[in-house]
C-alpha cells in the first residue's frame, strides 16, 4: 500500500468514526424533536412521516402541568445564580491569581474538593437544614444550593483567564496612575470578558440542568423544569409526546446560548484552565 493510499484509508476511517459519533449523539435528539410534534398515538410508531401538531406545546403549559411556572422558576434560579456567582468568583479568582495568599494552594484545593463530594451524600443535611430555616421549596433556597455548586467551577475557570492576562499590562496601568480597583475595572474585566461570558454561560447551564437538589428540595412552588419533566407520567404510562415538548423547551435556550457564544466559548475553553 502506498503512503497516499494509506492516508486515504485513514481518512475514510476517520470520517466514518466521526459520522458514527454524530449519529449516536443526534438520534435521541432527533427522536425527541419528532416526538414533540406527534400525537400521543403516533409516538410509539417509528414513522418519519406524520401530521405534525403543536398541540403538545400548548398542553404542557396548561393545567395540570403548568410548565410556565417551572420555566419561570428555572429562569430566575439560573439567572440569579449567575448574576451573584460571576462577580464574587471574579474577585476571588483575581485574588488567587494575583496575590500570594496564606494557604492559597490549600484553599484552591478545598474549593475544588467540594466538587468531589457526591450530591447524594449531602442532600439530606441540606433538606433538614432548609426545612428548619424555611428555605424548603423556595427559589432562594435553590439559588443558594446552585451557588454552592457553580462557585468552584467559576472560580477555577475565571482564575485561568486572569492568569492569562500578562502581569505587565496590569503593572503598566498601575504606573500609569490607576488604583487596584481601576486596574480591575479598566484592564482586567475587559480583557477577561470572553472568559467571564464563558464562565457565566457554563454556570447558567449547570444551574439550568440541576436536577437532584431541585428534586429533593422542592415540591410545589419552586419546582424547576427538569423536575417538571417527571410530571408527565399518566395512568396510561409515560406521556412521551409531552415529555419531548418539555424537553425541547429545556434545550432551546441552551441552543440559542451556544450559538450566541460559540466564538467566545472556544476562545474561552482554549485560553482558560479547562483546556
Amino acid at each position: 500500500m502506498t503512503g497516499k493510499q494509506r492516508q486515504r484509508l485513514l481518512g475514510t476511517v476517520q470520517v466514518s468514526l466521526i459520522l458514527a459519533a454524530i449519529f449516536v449523539m443526534l438520534v435521541p435528539i432527533a427522536w425527541i424533536f419528532l416526538a414533540a410534534f406527534k400525537t400521543h398515538v403516533d409516538v410509539y410508531q417509528l414513522k418519519l412521516f406524520f401530521t405534525p401538531t403543536l398541540e403538545n406545546f400548548g398542553t404542557v403549559f396548561d393545567d395540570p402541568y403548568r410548565l410556565g411556572e417551572k420555566l419561570f422558576n428555572s429562569t430566575i434560579v439560573a439567572l440569579v445564580t449567575v448574576v451573584i456567582a460571576i462577580p464574587i468568583a471574579t474577585l476571588a479568582a483575581y485574588s488567587f491569581s494575583r496575590f500570594s495568599l496564606r494557604g492559597e494552594t490549600l484553599m484552591l484545593v478545598i474549593i475544588l474538593a467540594t466538587q468531589f463530594v457526591p450530591a447524594v451524600v449531602i442532600i439530606l443535611p441540606f433538606f433538614v437544614m432548609f426545612r428548619d430555616i424555611g428555605l424548603l421549596d423556595t427559589r432562594l433556597g435553590l439559588i443558594l444550593v446552585n451557588l454552592a455548586i457553580v462557585m468552584p467551577f467559576a472560580i477555577w475557570m475565571i482564575k485561568g483567564f486572569i492568569d492569562g492576562i500578562p502581569m505587565d499590562t496590569e503593572e503598566a496601568a498601575m504606573v500609569d496612575g490607576s488604583s487596584r480597583l481601576q486596574v480591575i475595572r479598566n484592564i482586567v474585566l475587559p480583557m477577561a470578558a470572553p472568559g467571564l461570558l464563558t464562565s457565566g454561560i457554563f454556570c447558567f447551564i449547570i444551574a439550568w440542568n440541576e436536577f437532584l437538589f431541585a428534586l429533593i428540595l422542592t415540591n410545589k412552588d419552586a419546582v424547576t423544569l427538569p423536575i417538571g419533566l417527571a410530571l408527565f407520567k399518566g395512568e396510561e404510562g409515560d406521556l412521551w409526546n409531552l415529555l419531548s415538548a418539555a424537553g425541547i423547551i429545556i434545550m432551546a435556550p441552551m441552543f440559542v446560548l451556544a450559538l450566541m457564544i460559540r466564538k467566545y466559548f472556544v476562545q474561552g475553553m482554549t485560553m482558560g484552565a479547562v483546556r
Binding site: 500578562p166 499590562t169 498601575m174 504606573v175 500609569d176
Partner: peptide, 19 residues
C-alpha cells in the same frame, strides 16, 4: 503606590492594553 510616584514606565513586553 505606583500611581502616586509620578513615574512613567516602558515595559519589555510593552504592557499595552490590547482591548
Amino acid at each position: 503606590l505606583p500611581k502616586n510616584r509620578d513615574v512613567a514606565m516602558v515595559f519589555q513586553n510593552y504592557g499595552l492594553y490590547p482591548h
